[in-house]
Design a protein around this nucleic acid. Sequence first.
DNA 1: GCAAAAGTGTTAACTATACACCCATGG
DNA 2: CCATGGGTGTATAGTTAACACTTTTGC
Lengths: 233, 233
Amino acid sequence: MNNIMPKDRQPLATPTPEIYVDSVLFQLIDDELAVLLTQRELDPYKGMWALPGGINAKGETTYDAMQNVLKAKTGIKVAQLGFIEQLYTFDTVTRDPRGHAVSVTYMGLGRGLAPTATPVKRHAQFFPLSQVPDLGFDHNQIITYAHDRLIAKLSYTNAVFALLPSLFTLSQLQAAYEAVLGRTLDKRNFRKKYLSLNLITETSELHMEGAHRPARLYKFNNSSLEYLSRSFD
Amino acid sequence: MNNIMPKDRQPLATPTPEIYVDSVLFQLIDDELAVLLTQRELDPYKGMWALPGGINAKGETTYDAMQNVLKAKTGIKVAQLGFIEQLYTFDTVTRDPRGHAVSVTYMGLGRGLAPTATPVKRHAQFFPLSQVPDLGFDHNQIITYAHDRLIAKLSYTNAVFALLPSLFTLSQLQAAYEAVLGRTLDKRNFRKKYLSLNLITETSELHMEGAHRPARLYKFNNSSLEYLSRSFD
DNA sequence: GCAAAAGTGTTAACTATACACCCATGG
DNA sequence: CCATGGGTGTATAGTTAACACTTTTGC
């Protein structure tokens, strides 16, 4: 298999860097965007929190590896997520004390996700973005990158569906946008504009909760990624 | 170095896939978008055209590897380009007859690029998008992906600067947009809108050419990537 | 009846779109 | 003087942004 590769630069048995996968999973907790972290059991950065990640074995696609690693380290299955996509590939040559590796990262969205103890038995827990500690590797920067991508994605797709239950109120929808964007939006303008995009449909159901007027429940027309006719915010 | 990696999945000496880099370089040729291809000298796909690519040696970042491979296979230096960014990372496990590899791809823009014969001595040549042949691997799809990214990029950044000379006419600017988008634009609306973005400044120079009124020359305020205040087209 | 969140409309400013003719030059 | 590409304005429709009060419920 290696007979077609130029050997002049690296005559070693493993001439290319190791491949890892890391995932940035977001969900809303109390109207705040939260990210899934695991506590490292081994050096480097033993005991510190980091993004759930692991090695990409030969024969696995990066997507397969991401699924396997997430399941093993957090108990979360990709099928539980509303959305996941490849984010970026980071070089770790200068930052990773282990040596030369490349990290293919994924960004995913879900709701009601509960990481569990697993065979590999690492601690795994969602942290609100405002409470993310200093992480191993340059994972803080990767989270910032993922958050920026998410903000952009919400402006030109219906990706927000993946953060919400299948039936939701317009206030919940607006709160999801506000949590991701980190700023408040005008209620009347938000509703007018979002309804004009024809992404959601009113249902006959009401959401009764608390000592106030019940709210109309809506649903998304598509629960797969759709591009908006005009961009939002 | 490997002592911290779980060995249970792959006990081989090279447990992760090989890493390759491939580049999609665009420039304008006769007001048409063209992409740089090289002719393969080795199997697989010997003799076919493909994106310039090669192995990512351990110790090189993917960016370094991309620079080295481009220089070696086409004679083009990344410093000659106006813009380059990572595009996407493709799994090749199912499509690559060589076995399991992962390809980190880059997308770049330039002007006046002339690939040359090099020590590695592969044919390298720009093909107008309409004349790209069937390529090895799934490189046709990668070009389509890069083209889509470029269309998006032109709508929210000033990336078009990288396709133009430092002094250019509004007609050249419009032609660049039209070449990338694949459709014509209204001249008056294009000029009005582009000027309102405050990305370019009129110079005192005129472009005299042909039997017609000379054209005013403009320049970009920044020759690095800038995000637009409102999106274009 | 009161506290809490749901729901609703109008106006003004801005942006996008459609569209046709005159200008300056070289040959 | 003619062929060629450069350069310009207006009117309409659509979109965005700012802004405050009434409704329905549980307690």
